[in-house]
Design a protein around this nucleic acid. Sequence first.
DNA 1: CGCCGTTTTGCAACCGATTGCAAATCAGCC
DNA 2: GGCTGATTTGCAATCGGTTGCAAAACGGCG
Lengths: 333, 333
Amino acid sequence: MAVTLREVAERAGVSRSAVSRTFTEGASVSAKTRRLVEQAAKDLGYSPNALASSLTTGRTKMIGLISNNFHNPIFLEVFDLFTRGLQDRGLRPLLVNLSDETDPENSVRMLRQYSVDGVIVASSTLPLSFARAFRDAGMPVVHSFGRHAASPNVHVVGIDNVACGRMAVRALIERGYRKIAFLGGPEEATSTQDRFTGFLNEVRKSQSVEASHSFAEAYSFEAGRAEMTRLLAEGPPVEAYFCGDDVLSIGVMSAIESHQLRVPDDIGLIGLNDMEIAGWQNIDLTTIHQPIGEIIKASVELITTMLDEPETRPEARLFPCRIVERGTLKPIR
Amino acid sequence: MAVTLREVAERAGVSRSAVSRTFTEGASVSAKTRRLVEQAAKDLGYSPNALASSLTTGRTKMIGLISNNFHNPIFLEVFDLFTRGLQDRGLRPLLVNLSDETDPENSVRMLRQYSVDGVIVASSTLPLSFARAFRDAGMPVVHSFGRHAASPNVHVVGIDNVACGRMAVRALIERGYRKIAFLGGPEEATSTQDRFTGFLNEVRKSQSVEASHSFAEAYSFEAGRAEMTRLLAEGPPVEAYFCGDDVLSIGVMSAIESHQLRVPDDIGLIGLNDMEIAGWQNIDLTTIHQPIGEIIKASVELITTMLDEPETRPEARLFPCRIVERGTLKPIR
DNA sequence: CGCCGTTTTGCAACCGATTGCAAATCAGCC
DNA sequence: GGCTGATTTGCAATCGGTTGCAAAACGGCG
């Protein structure tokens, strides 16, 4: 079915090496043979088999794109940007869905079998053991949306979740809220833990603030709604909630409204992510913007440099977040 | 870095063929050598290189997963289900983002280079020329969410959009609406065209109904909001709108609310897809449910059977849709 | 024209596997 | 133990490319 190197060589009347060389950057071919080969290749509709060449070159130009996050709408944008970013550099994403995988070894084996050149782990909820396992298997790894660490063992790109936690508290205080709460995502997610840490740090700085906290079971609408419903049943709500994520916030918002209370008049709400939906006029969620475009740009950049220099020492690139003022908090006094 | 067949063979004290055979289903190996090989493989942490073997077997077990739809939240679920479905059958999705690609030839070349075993085109807006180009290049193709045709030239899995158009009109009539409109997605999308066809068919059946139509520029919130804003500026709205898609509907809904009108009291709204967000209590969109789980299951099934019998004749599998009653239409009288 | 230094070329080995074929081994039976 | 037929094994070719190396061709110069 497919046209091979050999056929092109025969038609062009040159050796197979000559053909191979015309298709490899910077190889030594005369203008004449190049012309000959290109003509023959065009006639036959030839394009080199990337996998066959990977055998000798050791590069497949495939990158494992790994995630377990197929429910948060923001990840659609993440996949969009990643696939484009990789494609623009001639790389191909091999998508791996780790939603119900618990053993890193399985994934390692699979990625080995397909000899990907590198791995991007795009998740804030996947255990660190995955990224580490890939690195230990000798693959270049970038963990996007991962946890910041003083001396990370793989490249990490993301935001400073602790700083975000602090930022949220300051935003609430500035707007006059004094009884506030952290309503986080799953307690075992590092992003939740870090945001909570920042939240607590900042709360402790001011005596006048009264803080409480709880956790939803997932970063999802239903989990947010369920948790807020539970809180409302338990007793009177606080003045404002910092939610672990936008989609969680919207679930919380819906629980509040179902309870005949109003946002922001009765309860203030601030989310995190600034996903597209947060800006929809009928949602209009005040939130902390996470610069996913930059995060992904940096991730792709890091993975490509690692392809050339696999031994670069792991670094953490964190991008600043900012508050996006919308309609779920009262204005600054 | 990676362990190869040869090393395992040496350690086990057998030939390379023996090793290869222990890892291929149904090959002839004695229990003794199998034990030997398996032990050696385990010691060395060997797993066969899928790409190398693809050279001789002609199968990579990679499937091109192709889409240009990275903005509609429903596609996150689509990717989730596809990746799982493929993984469960030992296939690997190579994700291709065609968002700003217009020439099928580029994609064909790329998929050829990576010798994917088959291609799933997951899009309702991609021109038919893409699926056809892949087929002409000799790859098994399934077009999911594609257009129904009497004699399709590739497998098509999806819904009957014409029937959906009719269903929407009947739903509106049943609920007492008489002045209705179709507010479609991009006019060049086959899904839009078919839904509109169905809409018109059904409208023509009853004299008492007065219908109009217009098209948004994309299946997106902003496009829906913009189009509805334009309509409201132009003159009085009709009683109810059938929107081409849920996210479009939500944009429309927000425009209506921004105009101090209420849904469903002033204007009725019915969408299509039944994406998760449509069920959120603060959206609560009445819509036509598209069974994407079944569509994807059938798509994966079709592509796997095509791997064994590439010559099966193209068929169209269409799944029935149903109306999901929520809060944006008045109840049946 | 002959010499010398560069470029270009083809040969052949190799990347990591699979597989047809013939030789070797095994099991069963007399 | 020797014969026969069935299993198992290894050899070697192959899949579609790349690449080091030596030979061939080229270009410039005296």
